[in-house]
Structures are given as C-alpha cells and as structure tokens.
Deep mutational scan, measured.
Amino acid sequence: TFYNFIMGFQNDNTPFGILAEHVSEDKAFPRLEERHQVIRAYVMSNYTDHQLIETTNRAISLYMANL
C-alpha cells in the first residue's frame, strides 16, 4: 500500500520523511487504501500545508512508477 511505501521514509530528513511522520500520526489516514485517487483526495481534503500536499503528489507518482 501507499502507507507502507511512505513509512519506509520514516526518520529520513527529507520531504518524504516529513510526510511519513505526518501520515504515521494521522489516525484517520487510509492505511489500507491502494487507489492513489482516494489517497490524493484524502490529503487534499485533510491537509492544509501546501508543501505536504506537493510532497504527497510526488510520493504517489514515485509509488505508482514502482508498482
């Protein structure tokens, strides 16, 4: 899942690491979701930090390219 992918960046001092920290603390994050459209919609609806949203979009693109 995307959640498992992004958790691989925990403790990294990178934008993906920052995203992983936010996702791990977000109890409502769709952890079992595999459809990138649902993940993107969730982030757009629940996150207000523009940098975090952009990082999510980049992470989703990388995740999709590696499926």
Rank of each mutant, 00 (worst) to 15 (best):
T1K: 05
T1P: 08
T1C: 06
F2M: 02
F2G: 00
F2N: 00
F2D: 01
F2Y: 03
F2I: 05
F2R: 00
Y3G: 00
Y3S: 00
Y3W: 07
Y3A: 00
N4H: 11
N4D: 14
N4P: 01
N4F: 09
N4L: 10
N4S: 13
N4Q: 14
F5V: 01
F5S: 00
F5P: 00
F5N: 00
F5M: 01
F5K: 00
I6V: 07
I6K: 00
I6G: 00
I6F: 03
I6Y: 05
I6T: 01
I6S: 00
M7E: 02
M7F: 03
M7N: 02
M7R: 05
M7W: 03
M7I: 08
G8L: 12
G8D: 07
G8C: 12
F9I: 03
F9N: 01
Q10W: 13
Q10T: 09
Q10C: 14
Q10I: 15
N11V: 05
N11A: 07
N11D: 09
N11M: 08
D12W: 07
N13F: 06
N13E: 10
N13M: 07
N13S: 08
N13V: 06
N13K: 11
N13G: 13
N13L: 07
N13Y: 06
N13P: 12
T14H: 06
T14V: 03
T14C: 06
T14A: 03
T14K: 03
P15G: 07
P15Q: 09
P15V: 11
F16Q: 02
F16C: 06
F16S: 02
F16V: 02
F16Y: 07
F16E: 02
F16I: 05
F16D: 01
F16H: 02
G17T: 04
G17Q: 06
G17I: 06
G17L: 05
G17R: 06
G17P: 03
I18R: 14
I18Y: 09
I18Q: 12
L19D: 01
L19W: 02
L19A: 01
L19C: 02
A20I: 04
A20R: 06
A20E: 03
A20D: 10
A20M: 04
A20V: 05
E21N: 15
E21T: 14
E21G: 12
E21D: 12
E21K: 15
E21C: 11
E21H: 15
H22I: 13
H22Q: 07
H22F: 13
H22C: 08
V23E: 01
V23Y: 05
V23G: 03
S24A: 13
S24G: 09
S24K: 15
S24D: 07
S24H: 13
E25W: 10
E25R: 15
E25H: 15
E25V: 11
E25F: 11
E25Q: 15
D26M: 05
D26K: 03
D26T: 05
D26A: 01
D26Y: 06
D26H: 01
D26C: 04
D26F: 07
D26W: 02
D26I: 06
K27Q: 10
K27I: 12
K27R: 10
K27H: 10
K27W: 07
K27A: 12
K27Y: 08
A28F: 14
A28D: 13
A28K: 12
A28E: 11
F29C: 03
F29K: 00
F29H: 05
F29R: 15
F29Y: 04
P30G: 01
P30S: 02
P30W: 15
R31F: 06
R31L: 06
R31K: 10
R31A: 05
R31I: 07
R31Q: 07
L32H: 13
L32Y: 14
E33I: 04
E33H: 04
E33L: 03
E33W: 04
E33G: 03
E34I: 15
E34C: 14
E34F: 15
E34A: 14
R35V: 05
R35G: 07
R35Q: 09
H36G: 14
H36S: 13
H36L: 15
Q37C: 13
Q37V: 08
Q37H: 15
Q37T: 11
Q37Y: 12
Q37P: 05
V38M: 10
V38W: 07
V38P: 04
V38S: 08
V38R: 07
I39C: 02
I39W: 03
I39P: 00
I39V: 09
R40V: 13
R40A: 09
R40Y: 11
R40M: 15
R40F: 12
A41V: 08
A41I: 08
A41M: 10
A41Y: 09
A41D: 14
Y42A: 02
Y42C: 03
Y42K: 01
Y42P: 00
Y42Q: 00
Y42S: 02
Y42F: 03
V43A: 06
V43D: 00
V43L: 07
M44W: 07
M44L: 12
M44N: 10
M44Y: 11
M44Q: 11
M44R: 07
S45V: 07
S45E: 14
S45A: 14
S45R: 10
S45N: 14
S45P: 01
Y47E: 01
Y47K: 01
Y47Q: 02
T48E: 10
T48L: 11
T48W: 07
T48M: 08
T48C: 08
D49R: 03
D49I: 06
D49K: 05
D49S: 08
H50V: 13
H50G: 10
H50N: 13
H50K: 14
H50I: 13
Q51T: 13
Q51E: 13
Q51G: 11
Q51N: 13
Q51S: 13
L52W: 05
L52Y: 04
L52D: 04
L52C: 06
L52F: 05
L52M: 07
I53V: 09
I53Y: 05
I53E: 04
I53H: 06
E54G: 05
E54F: 06
T55F: 08
T55L: 12
T55Q: 06
T55H: 04
T55R: 04
T56H: 02
T56P: 01
T56R: 02
T56G: 06
N57A: 09
N57K: 11
N57L: 15
N57T: 08
N57G: 08
R58Y: 09
R58T: 07
R58G: 05
R58H: 10
A59R: 05
A59D: 01
A59V: 07
A59L: 11
A59Y: 06
A59I: 07
A59Q: 02
A59T: 03
I60H: 01
I60G: 00
S61C: 14
S61K: 13
S61E: 14
S61V: 14
L62H: 06
L62Y: 06
L62G: 03
L62W: 08
L62S: 05
L62T: 05
L62C: 11
Y63P: 00
Y63K: 01
Y63A: 02
Y63T: 01
M64Q: 09
M64I: 14
M64L: 15
A65H: 10
A65S: 11
A65F: 10
N66E: 14
N66Q: 15
N66S: 14
N66T: 14
N66F: 15
N66R: 11
N66Y: 15
N66G: 13
L67E: 09
L67G: 10
L67W: 08
